[in-house]
Amino acid sequence: MSETLKVTLEKPDGAVAILRTDGYINNTGGEEIARQAYTLLGEGTVRLLLDLERTKIVNSIGISILIEVLEKVLDQGGRLAFCHLTPTIEKTFQIMGLAQYARIFPSPEPALAWLRGEVE
């Protein structure tokens, strides 16, 4: 049984980056997201979208690593958004209070508009 997470990066422009996940966000999955996110932050890309369309399950260890990512994004004056969450993952993020510091969108387009500062 392997639920190894795959993360693919898309940079539609120099201001924002999209990380698309495919699989289970557990400790190893969370670490892979963090690795790629920290590389982007190091390059100066501080507005990130995590698209979880192909992730159907997460655990609290993986989400705790996403909280670390969120902390570093906010420290650098950036923004973090999520889109394509399953209802249960969105509910879990709400339970944990992540939505107080990051924004959740149904699809990438409004998320990218918010990340670029085109809408508030």
């Binding site: 260890i61 989400i63 705790s64 249960t88 879990t92 339970i95 944990m96």
Partner: peptide
């Protein structure tokens, strides 16, 4: 009970399991 505001500044960010279970 974990609080997101505290966890964001804390070195230990875990401890959410029981809260998630009870909420779901």
């Amino acid at each position: 009970a974990p609080q997101i505001g505290e966890k964001l500044r804390a070195p230990h960010k875990r401890g959410w399991g029981l809260r998630i279970i009870r909420s779901l």
